[in-house]
């Protein structure tokens, strides 16, 4: 290939990439950063400073919503790992070769269904007039229908349901690469089932665990539908606050401050996770 032609094709290929990343990712992020730093004095008159952030920190309602979202997201991530690991292990190591692909595809079914439909399904099951409640009444276990929606346990359960697949997929692909001889060697050397799990399986699966946890955490902290629909109006989820500030109250300065805070916070957690486990972003998120 001639050098000129090579250069031309590089420019041609580079242009869409730069336009995309520049106009739709970098500049908009700088845009909300800018809006979060300005403070409305009167119509069309602004001053700049950190006042929005100070307001955010000094208002307990906002602060607590962030902490609540954070610890619930961490809880959901841990639960998804606990629920998902045995499933991934079964698919990768225990199931027969033939049924593996089928089981894996079955795990992916809910992925193809909209979040909204899934949350709606839980509403139909769990609300006061829902399937569970009326079945329990019919069986005579409870006397009056009970409301199972709008509490934290349901929100956590719904979130685990929504994100567990993103835990199972990387775990399964990591575990599939593990040689069974490793396990046999562990047992032959006298390791108990627990020792083999702790000393061989978990270290081997670590890259999968890290990428699963990161994806799960990001999805949970950024989720909107599941906490709002299953938790009701006072679910106090952080993304809900962002929506309220932006769309309901039309207070873009505060909304942008919340947005930047969420982004910084989730990036920090991801960075911390990568740092502690010694993985890189490119290998964990972009595996397939």
């Amino acid at each position: 290939m001639g050098r000129e032609a090579g250069k031309l094709s590089l420019i041609l290929l580079m242009t869409p990439f730069l336009l995309w990343i520049g106009l739709l990712i970098i500049l908009p992020q700088l845009g909300i950063g800018y809006v979060s730093l300005r403070e409305k004095i009167s119509y069309d008159e602004f001053s700049f400073g950190l006042k929005n952030y100070v307001d955010f920190i000094s208002e307990p309602v906002y602060r607590n919503t962030l902490f609540r979202t954070a610890w619930m997201s961490i809880l959901v991530t841990i639960l998804a790992l606990i629920v998902g690991f045995p499933v991934a292990y079964y698919i990768a190591k225990i199931a027969r070769q033939k049924s593996r692909a089928a089981l894996f595809l079955m795990c992916l079914i809910p992925l193809w269904v909209s979040d909204l439909v899934r949350a709606y399904g839980w509403i139909v099951l769990l609300r006061e007039t829902g399937v569970f409640s009326s079945t329990l009444v019919w069986l005579g276990i409870i006397n009056t229908p009970i409301e199972m929606l709008y509490n934290d346990i349901t929100v956590v359960m719904g979130l685990v349901y929504t994100v567990v697949l993103f835990m199972i997929v990387p775990l399964t692909s990591t575990l599939q690469g593990m040689d069974d001889a490793l396990l046999e060697a562990g047992y032959n050397l006298g390791g108990s089932r627990f020792t083999v799990f702790r000393r061989i399986i978990v270290p081997y699966a670590m890259p999968g665990i890290v990428s699963g946890c990161i994806i799960t955490f990001m999805l949970t902290a950024g989720s909107y539908l599941t906490p709002v629909l299953l938790g009701g109006k006072n679910s106090s989820w952080f993304t809900e606050q962002i929506y309220n500030q932006f769309i309901t109250r039309y207070n873009w300065e505060a909304g942008a401050t919340f947005g930047v805070t969420l982004l910084v916070f989730t990036s920090f957690v991801v960075w911390l996770g990568l740092k502690l486990t010694g993985q890189s972003l490119a290998t964990t998120v972009a595996k397939d």
Binding site: G31, I32, Y224, Y243, L262
Partner: peptide, 27 residues
């Protein structure tokens, strides 16, 4: 660096992508 930029949109929460584009377009 470009490769990291390529992946970053997956890591930004959808709500934030939405508001940032809304803000930028309005600006």
């Amino acid at each position: 660096v470009a490769y990291i930029l390529l992946i970053i949109p997956l890591v930004i929460p959808g709500v934030i992508l939405g508001i940032s584009i809304l803000v930028f377009a309005s600006m």
